[in-house]
Amino acid sequence: MKKYWMLIKNTWDEALVYRLNFILWRVRVVIRFLITYFLWSSIYSGNQQFFGYSREMMLTYVLMVYLVSNFVFATRTQNIGSEINEGKLTNYLLKPFNYFISLGARDVSDKLLNFGCTVFEFAIIYLLFRPPFFFQENLGLIILAVVAFVGAVGVYFCISVLLGFLGFWTSEIWATRFIFIILLDFVAGNFFPIDILPKILSQILMLTPFPYMFYFPVKVYLGQLTTSATIQGFGVMAVWVFLLTKAMFLVWRKGLKVYSAEGR
């Protein structure tokens, strides 16, 4: 375990070497959040109910997505594609550790760093704008939301790794990832809750893995899902985590067969 701990520590130190870059990255994240927050806040300025959400619930949704997404999105797996293309994957293959655990270790470091900053930023935003935030008092729902939150991390991790593994077959991976990130705003509930869409569309989306990254954990926290919808949600999420994990290992094995360590 010590070697993975060192990996976590190294990733942390690495991020802090380029401190100004990191600060700019955080400022950028805050700006993106403020745009969404200002927009929704303005839409609710003259309305108490909109899309079936009160102002308090919608702004809590937006703030919670900000917290969740900063943890879920914080990952080093976006580098996998270029590491494969540049032959840097060999460095990991030659070292005496499990590649997937090493990815996880690097992610833990990135997530801790980003989440720490997010909590700090959240506190500042809360003090500056005093948004109407809904604090969930039901401990059961908070525990369920944390479980959903962990599942969300798993879903995003698997999809992000799978996108990176495209690098085994092509060097043109940035566009796929770029389109995926944009689509997440719509289909994962990053920009708005899925249930404001037409019912049939939101029902179809709930069968895909995307809403389980942001929308589902936040809805569980808000306590806006019925018991059956919560059970169904956790069921679908578990199936996706299982299928995506299987796919990830399958693609990894296939990919290694064609990996040529180009440039090494």
């Binding site: 100004l20 700019l24 990255w25 400022v27 950028r28 700006i31 993106r32």
Partner: peptide, 17 residues
């Protein structure tokens, strides 16, 4: 500060405003 490559991403967000 040539290593500040993030500045371009940062400016994209600013421009979005």
């Amino acid at each position: 500060v040539p290593r500040l490559s993030n500045i371009v991403e940062f400016m994209f967000s600013i421009m979005g405003m």
